[in-house]
Design a protein around this nucleic acid. Structure first.
Lengths: 202, 202
DNA sequence: CAATCTCCTTGAACGTGTTCAAAAATGGGA
DNA sequence: TCCCATTTTTGAACACGTTCAAGGAGATTG
């Protein structure tokens, strides 16, 4: 991770990693199937840090919008030091066949942990929701986070301020949509969307 | 392109491409800066094919939902033969720094052509829209297409039938949202979203 | 103690994308 | 026809990720 952050993913060679770790190149491959697999550790650690920081937010906030904004902002905090590196990492994760893809079978545990986090975002609030909305909302919020991550990866503004702005502006919109979801006019629409999500899952 | 389709992106070597073309490896690099750059030709051709096929649809259909569905379905038609290959290609396009990224400066002309296509989807219809919605809708529909592409890339169902289902089910939802956008209740929400998009563009 | 087995470690070797100095072809003027 | 500048072409060489046969280290068994 030290070398990745210092030199970037592409410029860090397996030979350099092995030398830094004091082992041979072949030995690195005995413990990690490929260079990509080395990233999984990084990915997991970031997820853990996020879960910790998010727990603080969820203890502090009770309103749905504050909880959601807090959890998303805390992701930006945790990810900030790795922005440059993560851009290159994302390239590999975007390969549909890669185990690092957020939709892969290998990522299922991480995905479950993340949707669990958003389940807690929803749980502790005063939101009145239809049962089907309550069931699907955590996964939709996870998708929202994926969107934020995607935006953040492409964000070349100083200190990723645009990503900050995205979060602060999109959270009220989400909040309003969720609260409107029980209105007669909107309800049919929401049911359609939920049906669509359920049908295309997996 | 013949080799890419037959053997996939990774398994097609620059040496094989050069041999097939009857030139040396170095000569291939005289005309194409890298293996990635070879894809740009493929990308451009697919876009042209899509524009042609979409023009037929737009001549035939007049209702907004039919036009949108037709244009999206025609994209699936054009892309279908390259599904396996395009998955690997997408990995490279997902690199934020790659000129192949759909958000890169190099892709600006292609992006403009695509949003222009969706401007025509909107134009020829009976939709009554607020000015700001009419202005932003083409770009939002292009984003919708990017979403469909993303889904399609990850779609491993036979003949990408799930992607077909996504299109047939999401188009009515979009149609309803667009038509609802003038309702007093929804209008404020729509304005927020459009403001967000405008603020974060570029 | 010896024999054997499993786990761990090594570094040379392979195939890859890419580079580059050198050679070849081209084309226009003297 | 010859010369020279430019464009084009070549293939060996480089650095990289990855593989693998070979051997070493430790534990277990007879």
């Amino acid at each position: 991770m030290r070398l990745f952050r210092r030199d970037g993913y592409d410029r860090t060679t397996m030979r350099a990693i092995a030398a830094e770790a004091g082992v041979s190149v072949g030995n690195a491959y005995y413990y990690f199937g490929s260079k990509e697999h080395l990233i999984q550790a990084f990915y997991d650690r970031m997820q853990d840090e996020h879960a910790d920081a998010a727990a603080d937010v969820l203890e502090r906030e009770t309103a749905f919008d504050a909880r959601l904004r807090g959890v998303l902002e805390v992701w930006l905090d945790v990810a900030a030091p790795s922005h440059e590196f993560a851009g290159q990492f994302f390239k590999n994760a975007a390969d549909p066949r890669s185990p690092l893809s957020p939709f892969s079978a290998e990522s299922a545990p991480a995905r479950a942990a993340s949707t669990g986090l958003y389940a807690r975002v929803v749980e502790g609030t005063d939101l009145k929701l239809a049962p089907n909305v309550r069931r699907e909302l955590p996964e939709l919020l996870w998708l929202l986070q994926m969107g934020v991550v995607l935006f953040w990866v492409y964000d070349d503004s100083p200190e990723q301020l645009r990503s900050r702005e995205l979060v602060t502006r999109i959270v009220p919109v989400v909040d309003r949509i969720v609260r409107m979801s029980r209105l007669p006019l909107v309800r049919g629409l929401v049911d359609d969307v939920l049906g669509l999500v359920a049908a295309l899952r997996g």
